[in-house]
Amino acid sequence: MRSELDRPVQRELTRLRVNGEEFELYLPVHKTLLEVLREDLKLTGTKHGCELGECGTCTVLVDGEPQLSCLLLPLQAEGRELTTVEGLAEGAALHPLQVAFAELGAAQCGYCTPGILLAAKALLVRDPRPSRDGIKEALAGNLCRCTGYVKIIEAVELASQRMAEA
């Protein structure tokens, strides 16, 4: 039998700031940030493909840096600014990356899309006009099985261009 069932589950009061909103949660300490986002905060836009840190699907931003939420514990995220795909748009206005992804067909099944959007956002903050290789490098930890990556690279380029022009 699994050990966690033999003893009472240890819980901690955890404060999280996600997409600019504050949450106070009483969480089992072993629960991953991925699980907390999806199950406790119902932010199901964050997806998972392995829950072992191997696919990049669960990427969220922690203080602007892409991190794998399946490998983070909520305690590690306390006091930091978390951004999920739900926090990309400004109200109803989509982020230029979201627009470009939708426009160019960079989301086929769309399952890898939230993680890749966030990784790309972090990239564009760091380097507003990345090279093709720069894009590939920044997104190398995110797998996509549908698109062959081509339209994703093009969409990041398009968004970067539009953001530079804006």
């Binding site: 964050t46 989509l94 160019l104």
Partner: peptide, 15 residues
Amino acid sequence: PKVDGAPKVTGQAVY
């Protein structure tokens, strides 16, 4: 563009 582009880029599509 695809008709389901928006739900997929906003995390609203329900898998």
